[in-house]
């Protein structure tokens, strides 16, 4: 155990950098996925057929083993950040798309009917009423995506992506050497801690961005 702390102490700088890169990769991909996923959700939620197709497609993406998807992108996009971002964003879509559809479809039609009836513009109904009411559901989906991406992002190292995955991979590849286990362990623990902290921050974000009038539904 002492040896592990010693290792972490020595590599503190580079571990911290990887941690930052890992978190930054996941968060940026999540933001991208929220923008795309909510967009898809808005586009399809009013039609049951469209909702089914969007859910099925995003589910299909999730069934592809991440290792394979990273590998498949290498011939097309090469190594590095780009394939990592695209792969992670695709994986993050399903929970966000599905929760956006559920959140929007579950709004009482009387509420949107009243909004139209008192003269609110279609876009106003979407931004001031529907998305506000679906927000707790969208945020719940986002939290699932973030947790998922934290783990998957480690595999991005396979395609030379950034983050803590590098530390895990190099550790596992050099198993038997003196610091191999420490490296893998440092990367793994780093990811778990990061995941918990970010999830906590998202819960706080939910507190501040959800109206008390709907909080119980979140």
């Amino acid at each position: 155990m002492n040896q592990f702390f010693e290792f972490v102490g020595q590599r503190w700088g580079s571990l911290l950098f990887d941690l930052y890169q890992h978190g930054s990769l996941v968060l940026q991909c999540t933001v991208l996925a929220v923008v795309i996923g909510v967009g898809i959700g808005i586009a399809v939620y009013s039609s049951p057929g469209g909702s089914a197709i969007a859910t099925a497609l995003t589910s299909a993406i999730l069934t592809i083993p991440s290792f394979a998807l990273f590998g498949l992108f290498i011939p097309v996009l090469g190594l590095g950040v780009q394939p990592a971002v695209i792969t992670l964003t695709l994986y993050a879509l399903l929970p966000i798309v599905r929760n956006t559809i559920v959140g929007l479809a579950n709004i009482d039609p009387a509420v949107t009917g009243a909004a139209r009836g008192i003269g609110m513009h279609r876009l106003g109904v979407l931004t001031r009423i529907e998305l506000r009411l679906a927000w707790p559901s969208i945020l719940a989906g986002t939290r699932v995506s973030v947790q998922m991406l934290m783990g998957i992002a480690a595999i991005a190292a396979f395609a030379k992506g950034p983050g803590l995955g590098g530390s895990i991979f190099s550790g596992l590849a050099a198993i038997g050497s003196k610091t191999a286990v420490d490296r893998a362990l440092a990367g793994t623990i780093g990811i778990v801690v990061l995941a918990l902290v970010v999830d906590g921050l998202l819960v706080l974000l939910g507190r501040f961005t959800t109206s008390p009038g709907v909080r119980a539904r979140a």
């Binding site: 009482d108 009387a110 509420v111 009243a114 909004a115 009836g117 009423i129 506000r132 009038g213 709907v214």
Partner: peptide, 10 residues
């Protein structure tokens, strides 16, 4: 309208 259709988040 029936059941008022109030905006629950406001």
């Amino acid at each position: 309208i029936q059941q008022a259709g109030l905006f629950p988040h406001m």
